[in-house]
């Protein structure tokens, strides 16, 4: 049968159908060949979370919360990460950054680490079992101590201690972790001063004392 003898409409349908099959096959192949394993967005969110594994968000760890966020959960449930983490997740997901949800806790000013008052420790190993980071050293009936470098300050060990010998201490500022502070933003009192208004320090001090 001569192909030209076909009705033009039939011919067109055949050609289009053929094309659809070809492209469909290509797309199908590409989908299999370039398949992405896992959910990359979860990894990205997980990377932004502070990995304290504290569970304050209501999930048993940071990764489950990352999965929760990927499934549409609120992004403001992470007090250890604070506003910075919320902002970066908001950036990643292209949403507005909400305020930290106070229901899950408040952002602490300074990072803390657990500290065991060692002479009070009875060596019950309860805190060791609670620590998600394996950051507590010790054995049954032996004194325990916290590896401060590995402690994320999740305070999960405080609750199980039967003798309340664990406290959260602020991380001490040392030469190694000290950093300059940002200058305080332009103060409102300075807004009416122009560059030519430079005062001598004495004058400023006098004004201060007068005030």
């Amino acid at each position: 049968m001569d192909i030209s003898s076909l009705h033009p409409l039939v011919l067109a349908l055949l050609v289009l159908g053929g094309l659809a099959l070809v492209f469909g096959a290509i797309l199908g192949f590409a989908a299999v060949r370039y398949k992405i394993e896992g959910n990359p967005i979860v990894d990205q969110i997980d990377n932004l979370l502070p990995q304290t594994q504290c569970g304050q968000c209501g999930h048993p760890g940071c990764r489950p919360y990352a999965e929760g966020i990927a499934n549409g959960e609120e992004i403001n449930k992470c007090p250890p990460g604070g506003q910075d983490t919320i902002n970066s997740i908001a950036d990643l997901l292209g949403v507005d950054a909400p305020e930290l949800d106070a229901e899950h806790g408040t952002e602490s000013e300074l990072p803390t680490v657990a500290y065991i008052r060692e002479d009070e420790c009875i060596g019950c190993t309860k805190c060791i079992q609670a620590c998600p980071m394996d950051a507590i050293l010790g054995a049954a009936k032996q004194m325990h101590t916290v590896i401060a470098d590995e402690c994320t300050g999740c305070d999960l060990c405080v609750e199980p201690c039967p003798v309340d010998c664990i406290e959260m201490r602020e991380v001490e500022v040392t030469m190694q972790n000290w950093k300059w502070q940002l200058p305080s933003p332009l103060a409102a009192v300075n807004s009416d001063i122009i560059a030519s208004d430079r005062q001598t320090p004495q004058e400023t001090k006098q004004e201060d004392t007068a005030a």
């Binding site: 990995q51 304290t52 590995e150």
Partner: peptide
């Protein structure tokens, strides 16, 4: 950066645990 490094280490430790 230090915190990031630490959080990566924490993740590792947590996952290992």
């Amino acid at each position: 950066e230090i915190e990031k490094e630490k959080s990566d280490r924490s993740r590792q430790r947590f996952e290992f645990r």
